[in-house]
Nucleic acid binder design. Sequence first.
RNA 1: GGUGGGGUUCCCGAGCGGUCAAAGGGGGCAGACUGUAAAUCUGCUGCGGUAGCUUCGGUGGUUCAAAUCCACCCCCCACCA
Length: 436
Amino acid sequence: MHIFKELEARGFFYQFTDKNQIKKLITSGKTPVRNRVLPKVTFYVGFDPTADSLHVGHLLPIMAMRRLQQAGHKPIVLVGGATALVGDPSGKQEARPILTREQVAANAAALKAQLGNFISMDDAIFVNNADWFTEIRFLDFLRDVGYRFSINKMLAAESVKQRLETGLSYLEFSYMLLQAYDFYFLNREHDCTMQFGGQDQWGNIVAGIDLVRKMSSQEVFGATFPLLTDSQGQKFGKTAAGAVWLDSARTSVFDYYQFWRNCDDADVKKLLGFFTMLPVEEIAQLSELQPPALNRAKEILAYEATALAHGSGEAAKAYLAAGGKFGFADQERKIPTSSKIVEVKENQQVGIQDLPTYELLKSELTGDGIWIIKLFTDSGLCASNGEARRLIKGGGAYLNDQRITDQDLQITEADFTDNAAILKAGKKNIRRIVLS
RNA sequence: GGUGGGGUUCCCGAGCGGUCAAAGGGGGCAGACUGUAAAUCUGCUGCGGUAGCUUCGGUGGUUCAAAUCCACCCCCCACCA
């Protein structure tokens, strides 16, 4: 299947500035730029380094980039070191806190490293818009770029309209100009002719296209990806613990795996299409599976998605740890799949040590041991002592699979087997406590 | 700059001197049921080893007592200029 059709079949696109042209360019690869014809499309996607890790909400454009790159096109990863200082108002109810330059620079470096797992950096261009914006003088920018923007038009943009209700600072209002300038710059310096982004980026992308036409007389294109929601209409990628991060220090590999494994039945097909590299025909078959067997599709989804972010070794461990705890869906291999998950042997004695682990110092087991409530909070299973108390009161606390009812329980060395004990908050939140 | 209306716990939103850690809803967490799903029902949802302690934009004041009254300040919204 050709790349454009492939992306379309998987549901990657939401809107296009010119669908036919984009299809033609991506399919043929021939891109006319400034009286030349290039053999591939150079496209860009921007990420604002507002945190030191990406989360699954960023994954859709990343997967699209990966696929386009594998199809021979050239991705430009733009990290918004400058734009993050301004803050994109698109899709946001209120302004976000202004980051310091140091934070932004550190975040940008972290994002670059993570993106390297998904796309080959050897064959991509990595840029940071701080590199050009810090050179630009305010008055020059206003005269070269600012005069080409119509306030009337900007006010009509959906992203601005929304914020007009709650308030929008001039700083944020300027964001659109900066992103538009990025496109102009990348077109000029790298022959970039397409920009992709989330649904909320439409206004910014279109502004960039207009600016490129006005300043360079070049026709460029853009498309957006859909905003992912779960079957509840909730924003995708948020769980109890907050966002699901790609950084394993923030979201453990096990929890990352479990995030995918616990998706809604109704979302399996969509998620397989977006977040795995399995062929669409196979995805169609997997998502047709009937209920108990459908869990195999979820395992495959979780394994594949985890393998992309953390490597297949880590994914296998998470699969075994989770399966060891909750059971495996298809040990007999009745369900055909091209996923490497079939090579992972379930009967191995792995599993338990790959659960999220908390190290407890022996010295904390003073006197009559450690208080159970404290252990719940220290290990990160509960955010506060009060929460731990409520958990016990509600019957959701387990030690070594035994329900805890006593809030004053003291944990002693006798509760550990081979220096390890299993603590659970509810059925799914597990922490392995290791004595050291 | 003027006039009017606002800023409440994760979000929305009631409260308008004590009975307020603050109604109701959403969200979230847990339990039951299940397939580690959904739906449903039930409980919980500021911190605290439970004596207390901090919350209602900020600061100061009135009062035995303030989210509630007063003063000043900050921010938002609407209309006017």
